[in-house]
Nucleic acid binder design. Structure first.
Lengths: 231, 231
DNA sequence: CATACTATTTATCATATGATAATTTACTGG
DNA sequence: CCAGTAAATTATCATATGATAAATAGTATG
């Protein structure tokens, strides 16, 4: 990289005017600089995975590479910051209430929810970073799956049970969850096909959500019918 | 790595007997050595992604790193070989016939198929390598998705149409495929949760497949009913 | 305006990594 | 059994990469 940086240094004195230097050393507050670095890291890592180099991150952030180490003691700690930036604050607290608002049918409630939720996660940066994180055995991804299960899928199971006139038992079994995971996972895969693999799929997200929900609702209805006919 | 290999060399003369030397320079045929290297690369890459080093691959293969370059001109060409090893030969030609054998119901046919098929792909090595490959924009993954669509999903759409007494039209629309992709993607995500994230999910693969298929079959039935009631 | 503080850069290290050239050693055919 | 061929190793390069120490330069305060 000496070969790469040297010509630039040689070039600098040759510049005719000094009123427009390439980067006049912007001096930012600790917090602002930190956020710029994390943002640059998010973008690089989402493209290359977490093997993206600190030098590339620094370049994107418009700073030199050693400065990065004044804000993060190691690359791994920067990765932690990236995890937080990407995973946190993706949940709208209003959803908690909306999902159990029985003025609407389960279909309508979860249709609206998933249409908003997919606006958040059907994003190349999120999809790629979370894929890389899961392949790295990042525990944050386990935590995230837990959140999905507790905040979305278990409520779905419970609300559907109530809608079908079944038990109001709070506990949700692993078996009951499986069907919701199939639906949720199918949607995630749709997002991957569309935004990562860039396959030519339907771009009517609402229609896909509707189908996914219908599949789940029909299955639970059919399972109930079967149980009742068998006594 | 000099530090790592040197003690071994020093150790060799000290060994009391020469009938079990650490690695007496096995001399293999071009083909056999090539396969050992690819196998080692598959294993390493499935753990670390394609950034795994050629030195680590060589170590796993029990050879020195430069030897690798007598078989593959570059790391990228080794990666290509890994793609082939992992993606190819996963398809049992008998499946082509089994999927359109109308002696069995669509449910039974595809239940049997997916139970065999998941034996092939629900494998940490395959799941991880294919995830890494898709994040690398490897065109082989696009090709693989195409194969899935042509060999599994389009037949499923056609066979289901026939079973429901609908048209025997050969062409399958993007919209019709969406539902099968939701089901297939849900199953893939189940495999990921179980074998990559190592989440405590049902290990009754057959039951999960059955649920996924039921969801699809119920949806297509419901969609047909809806069309007929609307005229 | 001088001074202190700290954000930022320059210079540098140790190691890792893909790749190549030269040397050595195992097997095989005559 | 010996020589030639090719498999395998040793030595080495150039560059990339995470990380640190010292020097430099904005900015705010007295």
């Amino acid at each position: 990289m000496d070969i790469k940086s040297e010509p630039e240094v040689v070039n600098k004195p040759q510049s005719l005017s000094n009123d427009k230097p390439p980067t006049p050393r912007r001096r930012l507050s600790r917090d602002a600089r930190m956020q710029e670095i994390v943002q640059a890291a998010v973008e690089l890592f989402s493209e290359t995975g977490f093997d993206g180099s600190t030098r590339d991150i620094a370049q994107r952030a418009g700073i030199t590479q050693p400065l990065l180490y004044r804000y993060f003691p190691s690359k791994e700690s920067l990765i932690e910051a990236v995890y937080e930036k990407v995973y946190l604050d993706r949940w709208n607290p209003e959803w908690d209430i909306a999902l159990v608002n029985r003025d609407l049918s389960v279909k309508e409630r979860f249709q609206r929810f998933y249409e908003e939720y997919t606006l958040t996660i059907f994003d190349p940066v999120w999809l790629r970073i979370s894929s890389f994180a899961s392949l790295r055995n990042a525990q944050i991804h386990d935590w995230y799956n837990h959140v999905v299960q507790e905040m979305i899928l278990k409520p779905l199971v419970r609300e559907r049970r109530i809608e079908l006139g079944g038990s109001t038992e709070f506990l949700v079994s692993k078996e009951e969850l499986e069907a919701t995971w199939l639906m949720h996972g199918g949607l995630l895969e749709y997002g991957m096909r569309r935004f990562i693999l860039e396959i030519d799929v339907t771009n009517d997200t609402g229609a896909v959500i509707s189908q996914a929900l219908d599949m789940y609702l029909l299955l639970t209805q059919a399972q109930l019918d079967q149980r009742q006919s068998q006594g």
